[in-house]
């Protein structure tokens, strides 16, 4: 396979509020390839959004990227480690938007209601490309057309609050694509939308990806969306990537007990009416009180006392692309106490 455009290695992002420490992301690693979609899936508190924010270096205080590498291969072939760049500096600002576009869940709060959507798109274009105001406007109209906004010549002068949720999310995508980035990070891009609108937005992302050979990181809690969109999947639980692999493997040959249990517990339109669901016992622990050892062990069917609650399981490579973090597949560390 080609060179990855983005490689995350051992990323650790911690929050240190007054009350203690939250290991929001605790050793995440993955590769992203041009034209491919990496799905990051997990439930609340798993650290999927913080992972995206860490890549973009926009983690809010008191959070901080503590360790790890985020290697971005720039268009000229140079590889830069985003963790070592000044988060507020010009270099990072150039990468945000320029190399990596991003779309968040809440299209209402991500758009300014004081500027027309056109001006926001134009600003995003001119931030990264030296073009005249007139050319920028023409490009903005093109972009709005591309993301499927009807009558873009007129809509360009409307304000975000005049648009429906679906149209606002389209504007967000237009903004993210304004400087022709090669990577798109979409954090729960359809969660706030209705199901038919969700289908439209997913379709749009797929279309643009094919046209531009975009590398996409899609972050969601919805296994259905992942199955629909992703090529590769990383499953996260309380800060750890517990399993990663090609989408078909994750859905049809999952190895980690969490992935297996999660897949069994999702309601599906394919199920028999009124059929009981398999459940995962208990609830997700608060990230403040993450269990020691493997964070999933209190809810795990295959829990091995004295092993899983003592040490963090190592990453086991099951084949070239399939990795799992579980003692069922890798020997416990010998330094066990």
């Amino acid at each position: 396979m080609a060179e990855p455009i983005l490689s995350v290695r051992g990323l650790e992002t911690y929050f240190r509020p007054d009350e203690g420490i939250v290991r929001a992301v605790d050793g995440a690693s993955f590769d992203l390839y041009p034209g491919r979609t990496l799905g990051i899936v997990g439930e609340s508190g798993c650290g999927k959004s913080v992972t995206a924010r860490s890549i973009l270096r926009i983690v809010e205080r008191p959070g901080k990227v503590e360790r790890g590498e985020v290697l971005l291969r720039r268009s000229d072939g140079r590889v830069v480690d985003l963790v070592t760049i000044d988060a507020q500096g010009a270099g990072m600002r150039d990468i945000r938007g320029g190399e990596i576009g991003y779309v968040f869940q809440e299209p209402m709060s991500s758009l300014s209601s004081f500027h027309t959507i056109g001006n926001q798109v134009i600003e995003a274009i001119r931030l990264h490309r030296a073009v005249s105001a007139k050319d920028a406007r023409a490009r903005a109209i093109e972009l709005l057309q591309l993301v499927g906004i009807p009558r873009p010549e007129q809509r360009i002068d409307s304000y975000s609050f005049e648009l429906s949720g679906g149209l606002r999310q389209r504007v967000m995508i237009a903004l993210a694509l304004a400087a022709e980035p090669r990577i798109l990070i979409a954090d729960e891009p359809t969660t706030a939308l209705d199901v038919t609108t969700q289908a439209q937005i997913l379709e749009l992302i797929r279309k643009i990806q094919a046209e531009r050979n975009l590398a996409v990181i899609l972050i969601t809690h919805d296994m259905g969306v992942i199955a629909e969109m992703a090529d590769a999947v990383s499953v996260m639980y309380l800060g750890k990537v517990v399993e990663s692999g090609p989408v078909d493997t994750i859905f049809h040959a999952p190895r980690h007990p969490y992935t297996q249990a999660l897949l069994r517990s999702i309601p599906s339109v394919l199920a028999e009416p009124r059929s009981r669901l398999a459940t995962i016992a208990g609830g997700i622990q608060h990230p403040y009180a993450r269990p020691p050892g493997c964070p999933f062990h209190p809810r795990c069917q295959s829990f091995m006392p004295g092993v899983c609650d003592r040490n963090a399981p190592p990453v086991t490579k099951l084949d070239a692309e399939h990795e799992v973090r579980c003692f069922l597949y890798g020997a416990p560390a010998r330094s066990a106490t």
Partner: peptide, 11 residues
């Protein structure tokens, strides 16, 4: 899930 036994009752 059938009984309280399966619920996580943390110490």
């Amino acid at each position: 899930m059938s009984g309280p036994a399966q619920l996580s009752v943390p110490l």
